[in-house]
Simulated assay, not measured.
Amino acid sequence: MDATEDVVAKVLIIDDGNAETLELIKQFCADNHLIGLKTHSNNVMSVLKSNVDLGGILMSESYSGSPHGGIDLAVKLHKIRPELPIFLRRTQSSTLEDLPKRAQDCFCAAYHVDDMDALKHSLRDFIFSYYFPNAMVRGIQRITEDAMLTYFRHFSLSCETPYIVKDSIVCGEVFTLVPLESRWCRGYMMLQCENRTLKLDSSSHDPYVKPKAQRISDVLGEITNMVWGSFKSRYVVDEYRVLMSQTQVPMLVMLEEKNISFGTSTPQLCFKYTLTDLDDQSSPPVEIFQRLVFNLSWSPEDFKEVQVSTEELVDAGELEFF
Rank of each mutant, 00 (worst) to 15 (best):
S282F: 04
L88D: 01
I80P: 05
S299W: 12
D206L: 08
Y208H: 06
T247G: 10
C185D: 03
R186E: 09
S168E: 13
V137E: 02
E222A: 14
T266G: 11
T144V: 08
S64W: 10
N51K: 12
G36S: 08
D201R: 07
W298T: 06
I260L: 12
T150H: 07
T4C: 02
N259D: 13
Y131N: 02
E305I: 12
S46K: 11
K304H: 15
E194M: 14
Q92M: 10
D98Y: 09
L99D: 07
V286H: 07
I216A: 03
M189C: 05
S265E: 02
D105M: 14
F128W: 01
Q104M: 12
Y130H: 01
I164Y: 00
S64M: 07
L37Q: 10
K272G: 05
L119Y: 03
G69M: 01
D117Y: 06
I216V: 06
V253G: 04
E83L: 10
L48I: 12
V306K: 09
R102M: 14
F271L: 07
G263I: 04
I164L: 01
E318V: 11
I80W: 09
N51G: 14
T310L: 15
Y235I: 05
I127R: 02
L191A: 14
Y151M: 05
K212H: 10
R196H: 11
K49P: 11
I288N: 00
T310E: 15
I223Y: 01
G229L: 14
F107G: 00
V236M: 07
S122K: 06
E318K: 11
F28I: 03
S64Q: 10
T264S: 07
T91M: 01
P100M: 12
K304L: 13
M254K: 10
L22Q: 00
G65V: 06
E239L: 14
H205K: 14
L37E: 06
D280C: 15
Q214C: 15
N32S: 01
D114N: 10
R90F: 02
D114V: 04
V293N: 04
V209M: 00
S202N: 05
I35G: 03
R138N: 14
L37P: 03
I216G: 04
